[in-house]
Amino acid sequence: MSYLKSSILSKWVMAVTGIVLVGFLIGHTVGNMQLFIGSDTFNTYAAFLQGLGELLWVVRITLIVCVLLHIFTSIKLKLDNYAARPIKYQYKSYLKAKLTSRNMIWTGIMILAFVVYHLLHFTVGTAHPDYYNHYESVVNEKSAVAIDTQGEQIPPTFKTITQDGKTYVIQEEVKSAKTRHNTYKMVVTSFRNPIISICYIIGVILLAFHLTHAIQSAFQTLGLNHPRYFGYITAGSNLLSILIAVCLISIPVSILTGIVGGAI
């Protein structure tokens, strides 16, 4: 923890851990957009992530380490900053420091509270067990037998196959099935509760506020500021924050309006 002695090294730790977390957030957002494809795709994706085993824990531990370093460093820096100005200005006006950049620690703390709730809700499942505990059974293995129809008429509901001028009826039999977590149903039933949806939307908006400053700030900290491209970095930072927020907010909004999950 000797890096904390140097303000610039601390900044680098904030920037690097922040970039890792933004990387996760982009992946998380893109993955969640599969909710719009449908229940099966989304649940398959969720089962795939759960099935990663050790790799899942490598990712989780990396994220936990980044989150802890990010929080720990930011609190240390904030306390230093308070100490650097023991007497406040009686009259202070800001020329360039924005509401977002001045309140990173507060949006950060609120995002932390939101993330803890979010994990208890959707990952651990203890916040709302009624919404969490949905399971579905999926076919694991099927056997199929083709039976010669011997020229008989087959109702159109049956699956048939024609080969060498003969028609066969396909008779399928489920040999084994397994249950998997119905993540789709969990998300849909949760967000139908308007209070949960509103909390989620507020959390995402706070996150977007945090990101508009954070992303471009990370580039500045890593020394990547040049008049040739820094304008694009700032614009890209705002654009990415808004894009992430719009994508994530579209989930509860489309569930509340019935666009997604209408059948459940």
């Binding site: 820096l77 650097a84 800001y94 420091a97 924005k98 950049s101 990173m104 900290t221």
Partner: peptide, 11 residues
């Protein structure tokens, strides 16, 4: 010297 830490507010 006890100066604070830069958080890129550009003030």
């Amino acid at each position: 010297e006890g100066f604070g830490n830069c958080t890129n507010m550009y003030e």
